[in-house]
Computed example of a mutant assay.
Amino acid sequence: MAATSVDITSGGGLTHGGEGGNDGRQNSSEEWLLLRIGSLPRNSLGWFRCGVGFYNKKDYTKAIECFEKAVEMDPMNYNAFQIMARACIAVNRKDDAIAALKQSVMLDNPSDWQLLIELTSNKE
C-alpha cells in the first residue's frame, strides 16, 4: 500500500529542523516536543497538527501518540482517527488501524469506507 502524504495548508505542522525522528526507540512525542519546542499543545487541534508533522516526517509512533491525545480531547475528530489509521498501517498495527477507521466511519466520514473494506476483507 502506498504511503499517504498529509498536507495541512493552514500551517502549524512540525516543519523545523533537528535530529531525525526514526533513530531507534526515541522519546515519546511529549518528551520530543518539550525538549525541542519547550511546550505541549493545549487542545485537540494542536495535538492533531503535531501528529501530522510527525506523520510527514515518517515518525509514525509519535504521530499515533499525538492523534490519540487529539481524539481524547475531541472524540469527534474524525480526521485524527483517519490519519492515525494510516500511521498504524505503516507500523503494522492493522487491528488498531481498523479500530480507528471504524471510529472515523461512525463519525460519518465516508472517505474511510474503502480502506476499511480493504483492511477487513483479508482478516482471518
Rank of each mutant, 00 (worst) to 15 (best):
residue 16 H to L: 12
residue 17 G to W: 05
residue 18 G to H: 05
residue 19 E to G: 12
residue 19 E to T: 11
residue 21 G to H: 08
residue 22 N to T: 12
residue 22 N to H: 09
residue 22 N to S: 09
residue 22 N to A: 07
residue 28 S to E: 05
residue 29 S to I: 09
residue 29 S to C: 15
residue 29 S to W: 03
residue 30 E to R: 09
residue 34 L to E: 08
residue 34 L to A: 05
residue 35 L to V: 04
residue 35 L to K: 13
residue 35 L to D: 14
residue 35 L to E: 12
residue 36 R to L: 14
residue 39 S to F: 12
residue 39 S to E: 15
residue 39 S to R: 15
residue 41 P to Y: 02
residue 42 R to P: 01
residue 43 N to Q: 13
residue 44 S to H: 01
residue 45 L to F: 01
residue 46 G to L: 09
residue 47 W to D: 01
residue 48 F to M: 06
residue 49 R to K: 15
residue 49 R to C: 07
residue 49 R to D: 06
residue 49 R to I: 06
residue 51 G to P: 00
residue 53 G to H: 02
residue 53 G to E: 01
residue 55 Y to T: 00
residue 56 N to C: 15
residue 57 K to T: 08
residue 57 K to N: 13
residue 58 K to H: 12
residue 58 K to F: 14
residue 59 D to G: 05
residue 60 Y to A: 07
residue 60 Y to K: 08
residue 61 T to Q: 12
residue 63 A to K: 02
residue 63 A to Y: 05
residue 64 I to N: 04
residue 68 E to T: 13
residue 70 A to F: 10
residue 70 A to V: 09
residue 71 V to M: 01
residue 73 M to I: 13
residue 74 D to C: 14
residue 76 M to D: 03
residue 76 M to N: 09
residue 79 N to V: 10
residue 79 N to G: 06
residue 79 N to H: 14
residue 79 N to D: 11
residue 82 Q to G: 01
residue 83 I to C: 09
residue 83 I to T: 09
residue 86 R to T: 00
residue 87 A to Y: 06
residue 89 I to S: 00
residue 90 A to M: 11
residue 91 V to M: 11
residue 92 N to C: 02
residue 93 R to C: 03
residue 93 R to G: 03
residue 95 D to S: 13
residue 95 D to A: 15
residue 96 D to Y: 03
residue 96 D to E: 13
residue 97 A to H: 06
residue 97 A to D: 01
residue 99 A to K: 13
residue 101 L to V: 06
residue 103 Q to H: 13
residue 104 S to P: 06
residue 105 V to N: 07
residue 108 D to H: 13
residue 110 P to G: 14
residue 110 P to C: 15
residue 111 S to K: 15
residue 112 D to C: 15
residue 112 D to H: 08
residue 112 D to S: 10
residue 115 L to K: 04
residue 115 L to Q: 04
residue 116 L to I: 09
residue 116 L to Q: 08
residue 116 L to F: 02
